[in-house]
Write a protein that binds this DNA or RNA. Structure first.
Lengths: 244, 244
DNA sequence: GTCTTCATGTCGGAT
DNA sequence: ATCCGACGTGAAGAC
């Protein structure tokens, strides 16, 4: 086990920084490094990042993150499942993170390391999230008349040749109804998605069956609204949470 | 300016941890905290995360990240532009990050802080990235016959009522051509997107004009391929980089 | 600000 | 493993 005093270093020697990161990799700990580095990536795409100061996070699950001073997204990264390696090269510290299928490599070369710390992380709890598309679905299943009086849900995730429909059902006149749900304001892409399912069902069911398509979301953009009209699709304004 | 020895603390007192984070917020530094905490979020959605050990990163641009031991995505976060606050509440340290439009709040309550560090980050360089859709576009513009002998590009980002077309041009017979580019293997969504542009142009141009739609990507899924066929659209296999 | 689309998207669930 | 769609998607460019 790592002693408390052995977990972090300010202005560490390269060999000492390397030793700490190596320990983290071996023991399944999370490691953070801060310092001046350059970064190279090659895999699904390829990138180069010149010298600058960044925070690097290596997770025990094989994730690597390179964060600059700005932005929510890391400037470079490697997904979970990668194998991390650390090595010294003269004064510089080099972190390599690899994966296969697809073959991807991330290389971080530190010219100087200002800070290293390693942590034994235990996180047993999952995130509980509300305001999702599932909440929106449940609102409609609980009271289908919100969509339209007479609407009767028959299935969720009903399969069509074009993919699974969020809610499938029938209206008061016995017409087939396809419902596509979105938790937030929708654009043209959502209209196309709904249209795909409707057209697919029209081919699949007998020709005489009318298939109505409903897009359910808090709101729609102007262009999406026009597209809905052109395709003969309908819109119902509804949010995942009753108050919003 | 922060003295080197003043930048990090292991097992800090709550007041000392608070002082460091406060300094980071005031002086535009990046702060990292590691410890046992619970997290609440409310905004576009709402979430709760029970006690566990996590790494929290506060960036000078107003970004907040809460990372657990797994995954590339933070378990909770706040986008750039937020205002961070830190305060002590008995033994616990509370970090609050707020933004407006939309109103969103992130609250991280530390029951214990194992480590705090703050960093003055300077990162002057931007990422240089290859293998993007733009690279794919340039390949075709450089040698349009890759798409089809006789193809002549006339515009990129040509506007239609349904949105901007990646490449617009004419084929050897004078027919209009719409090209949709994807840097990777495509599914049904890309087919729908191309179809939107083609249908929009068919309405926009005179009725007698034939509009051909090309999807250009490294590969296509089976379902997408079938959809292309049904719509009378064409596929050309091409990757952003010549070798892949 | 809103809109639209790309992304090394990531992630989860189903096949 | 691939496919498919949701995501508090994020980020960028256009308007």
């Amino acid at each position: 086990m790592i002693e408390s005093g052995e977990r972090a270093r300010v202005q560490p020697e390269t060999t000492e920084a390397s030793r700490l990161v190596e320990t983290a990799i071996q023991e399944g700990l999370l490691a953070t490094l801060f310092g001046r580095c350059r970064v190279e990536y090659e895999g699904r795409a390829a990138s180069t990042l010149k010298e600058g100061e960044r925070l690097v996070v290596l997770k025990p699950d094989g994730t690597a993150l390179v964060h600059s001073d700005e932005g929510q997204k890391p400037v470079n990264w490697q997904p979970p499942g990668c194998t991390h390696e650390v090595q010294t090269d003269g004064d510089s510290l080099v972190v390599r993170s690899r994966r296969e299928t697809p073959e991807e490599v991330l290389l971080v070369e530190f010219e100087s390391v200002d800070h290293v710390a390693i942590f034994d992380v235990t996180d047993d709890h999952d995130l509980s999230l509300t305001g999702t598309e599932e909440d929106l679905r449940d609102r409609i299943l609980e009271d289908p008349s919100i969509l339209e009086p007479g609407f009767e849900p028959r299935a969720t995730e009903r399969q069509t040749p074009a993919g699974a429909v969020d809610i499938y059902g029938v209206d008061g006149d016995g017409n087939a109804v396809v419902v596509e749900l979105k938790r937030r304001r929708v654009g043209p892409d959502a209209v196309s998605q709904l249209n795909r399912y409707v057209e697919s069902l029209e081919r699949d069911l007998h020709a005489e069956t009318t298939v109505r398509g409903f897009l359910v979301a808090p709101s729609v953009t102007e262009r999406a609204s026009r597209l809905l009209g052109e395709r003969g699709l309908e819109f119902v304004s509804l949010a995942p949470s009753p108050d919003t």
